[in-house]
Design a binder for these strands. Structure first.
Lengths: 335, 335
DNA sequence: CTGAAAGCGCTTACAG
DNA sequence: CTGAAAGCGCTTACAG
């Protein structure tokens, strides 16, 4: 392992000069800097993050935390974030909270994370008050992608508007009996995504002179399986909507699957629209309200890097990324 | 930040004793160990990885490298690996090589990675001789998931057998005119996955008395788009196979999509089978040769942890994970 | 512009 | 079983 002393010896300068030259600090003559850089390159020298981190307290890594390890949404955010973070020389430390409570505690352990990462990127995670407090106690810059968390800068989409866009599309096609699949009855933390999307849905329906029918709302978490269950639940009720707005594309895929299993044609008998523009949605001809999730990851990472660089903790800001209706073949006028 | 001296002071022992007590080293009385553990817990003390890493040369992190950031396969391997790694207290450092050559060099930079991670998990990446050499020069345990790399332990599936299983299913259904979609004409590193699967395909066909027809093989990388292009290419040729074996489920999905666009029914006019059992495959009723990708990630991580713990570098071994045919509704006897 | 030296927070022989 | 001390490889005031 080549160390800083090897470079210094070879260049005939002190290790202090090597350190300064390589990190672009002022107070090094152009000639010396060039010499040191050349020798470092020749020797393939890279400073050890451990050693550099001890005196500075910086790790050179950013922790990216998601509720579960996989899922289209999380990997897309991660991809965008990783791209930016890598460009700026940060390592990406990956954590997920799927391993029950123990992992969750670990991630919100002030000391643990503080000693491992310079900053934190949290995806779409409902946080309780203790966890928010722990994050602040960390004294590290934190960014959230998804829900608004008090006191923490957020990159998000306007979920009420998402609900409006989806429902408006259906209403404009002529639908008046529109179901909504979304909302997690097990959520006790008040995760606002589904409720907000439903708010936009109800608002647009009322504008069209339709009072939302509670029997047309069925709960669904963000999975294909939940979409199937949601459709089954709906079919078991005494209602026959002509359209359905699903809280995510994966839910919409489940709904389409279950509907077709029962011989209900999409879009002839039932129009279906989702949210996200999941990688696979176009394959299903699924109409959707698209969000640019990679871009959300990128923006969050850029903001984080900015705060890491400047050392200034700006006011917690909320950046709203626009969403866009994409009409495909899963929606059509009612017959 | 609570440091080891704080714990030592509070416990009335030396930092050496704290260090030993907390890491479970021998030579500490039960009573002292208990006392130190209690105080550490009370203070929320965690050793700084940077500080611990300096004297030991260990980072406590494992780097997980994939060719691209996303994709069902890579995230599934990562999920399995991360589960095991987290259980054993290792941090996961995530690298991907999508950022062109510069990133690739970075990852194979002996010094850089060596100073950041204790071990390396490489996914499905064709490596050239220089890269393999760099990996060895790193003197860190390396595991590969996917292709066999000389001198490096591998977790893999038997791709020739995969080809056999898929083709045998089609042949047993009665198909004799079977197409193959797979193989990347741009690959100059001899990535063996597609060729091996095609080998199994050809073998089973010959056993059934059918000489593989070169016109029935169309190239396709591992994407849905490639599957669409592959079907288009096939349709443009003067052949009408009754079945198609796609090198992956995503390719198969593209083939099914393109076929249906042209009014070709699956499975009535064309049986389609893929490989992987992708999360979404059941939604398409896609028959497939399933591999347990999470398990591959888990096994690789377990082997890596084992080598990290023992410090013994065992002989490079090759572990083959079994694959299994899942027949769904995309395959049927020819009409 | 440059260097000598202290110090970051741990681990690990070495002594006792 | 326990502690004092050296040392890991850097960075950063402080001096010159």
């Amino acid at each position: 392992m080549t160390g800083i002393v090897d470079v210094a010896a070879r260049a005939g300068v002190s290790v202090a000069t090597v350190s300064r030259a390589l990190r672009g600090l002022p107070g090094v003559s152009a000639a010396t800097r060039q010499l040191v850089q050349d020798i470092a390159a020749e020797l393939g020298y890279v400073a050890s993050p451990s050693a550099a981190g001890l005196p500075t307290g910086r790790t050179g890594a950013v922790a990216v935390v998601s509720p579960i390890a996989r899922g289209w949404y999380f990997t897309a955010v991660l991809e965008g974030a990783q791209e930016v973070l890598a460009q700026h020389g940060y390592d990406v430390l990956r954590y997920d909270l799927s391993e029950v409570e123990t992992n969750r505690r670990k991630v919100f352990d002030t000391q643990l994370l503080r000693k491992r990462a310079d900053g934190l990127l949290i995806m779409s995670l409902p946080l309780d008050a203790d966890e928010v407090a722990a994050l602040h106690a960390m004294h590290r810059p934190v960014m959230v992608v998804g829900p608004i968390v008090p006191g923490i800068p957020t990159i998000r989409v306007d979920d009420v508007e998402v609900g409006r866009q989806a429902t408006r599309h259906l209403v404009e096609l002529g639908h008046r009996s529109v179901a909504f699949a979304g909302g997690d009855p097990d959520d006790h933390l008040g995760f606002p995504v589904s409720p907000d999307r439903r708010l936009g849905y109800a608002e647009v329906l009322r504008e069209a002179g339709v009072e939302p029918d509670p029997r047309l709302t069925v709960p669904a978490k963000f999975t294909v399986e939940a979409g199937i269950a949601a459709y089954e639940e709906l079919a078991s009720r005494d209602v026959r909507p002509t359209a359905l707005f699903a809280v995510s594309d994966e839910v919409a895929m489940g709904v389409m699957y279950a509907a077709r299993q029962r011989g209900v044609r999409v879009p002839e008998d039932l129009s279906v629209i989702g949210v996200d523009d999941h990688d696979m949605s176009w394959l299903f001809g699924l109409s959707t309200v698209a969000q640019d999730v990679r871009e959300e990851g990128r923006l969050a990472a850029m903001a984080l890097v900015e705060r890491l660089r400047s050392g200034i903790d700006t006011e917690p800001s909320i950046t709203t990324v626009p969403t866009e209706l994409i009409a495909r073949t899963s929606t059509a006028p009612p017959r």
